[in-house]
Design a protein around this nucleic acid. Structure first.
Lengths: 164, 164
DNA sequence: CCGCTCGGGTTGACACATCAACCAATCGCG
DNA sequence: CGCGATTGGTTGATGTGTCAACCCGAGCGG
């Protein structure tokens, strides 16, 4: 089927690189997530939350700090935290005047302590080591450039509400 | 909070590159998907299906061909196709003996013809051009290597059913 | 012919994400 | 003081992804 008239199209090399990149993403993501799920019963999202909490002093954060560091929207975060609380990975604790703090539980801490090294090993095996130090460094640079470009363009961090 | 004993951990540079990569992914994905959605009412998934169909001769494919080229599981595909049919982007047509063919509708074709060039332009702007030809070529290589490595390791394309 | 398995495909239940609407305490300021 | 706007957070509806179970026709062994 004819593929639309030539516009600001990608040429063959670009097309190929882009699709390779997409495939790599999908493959890596599903692989890592699959094993996280299978071996530890954690989703990528659970993992992200637990990492953030465990990296903070004292293992407790306010929800909006989590929101900032994960870049999630607040409703997604709220929903996910209630699910995680139901599973005993975290707890919401009323603290000063208002707004609960999110605390990682013993169980949550145990879970991430167990799975983090294994996960890291996988990242090393399938990502870091395949790249090798040089290409990895280059990737890091480009990645930051891209994030910068998009951030700049979609100006004030583009929260989507900015719409006529 | 202490971050777990040093295991097969990632060192700082590796960690940083990995996180930059993750952030780039998320940023790029949400940016592209957001605009696809906003400007054309299509999700990334819709787009992927429509691209595949429109690239085939005659705009019709069997479901399992789509499943192969998108790498989706069959149930996801089935669900998504019924939704897309409800929205008039595709049609399921009974053909030879059994098993319907998936056909792109006029509407679906119009939609992708309209949005594909715009999407491609975005990919160029925020991905291709930021990389530049050299680094892009390198990325393409690495991406293929990674896909190869995972494919080989998780041996027979790891369909997850392979489990004791 | 019977009963097997097997592959393509659907279905239902559930986890998850997104959007819009809402709520409640605080802050700015008259 | 009082009241409106803002901020942090929750809720519900709806769309999407995943898993497991199922359906059904084809091929095949007996």
């Amino acid at each position: 089927m004819a593929l639309v008239s030539k516009g600001p199209w990608l040429d063959d090399d670009e097309q190929k690189a882009w699709r390779s990149y997409l495939l790599m993403n999908r493959t890596l993501e599903t692989h890592l997530e699959r094993h996280l799920q299978r071996d530890f019963g954690l989703s990528k999202s659970d993992f992200e939350i637990l990492v953030n909490l465990s990296e903070s002093e004292s293992g407790r954060m306010r929800a909006f700090e989590l929101s900032r560091s994960t870049q999630w929207e607040k409703s997604r975060l709220s929903h996910h935290l209630t699910r995680m609380e139901k599973r005993g990975l975290i707890r919401k604790e009323a603290c000063d005047s208002r707004y609960p703090e999110i605390v990682i539980t013993e169980e949550g801490l145990a879970a991430i302590k167990e799975c983090a090294p294994v996960h890291a090993a996988r990242v090393r095996e399938f990502f870091v080591d395949v790249f090798g130090p040089d290409r990895l460094a280059v990737l890091g640079e480009v990645a930051d450039e891209i994030v910068g470009t998009i951030g700049k363009h979609c100006d004030d961090d583009c929260p989507l509400e900015a719409r006529s």
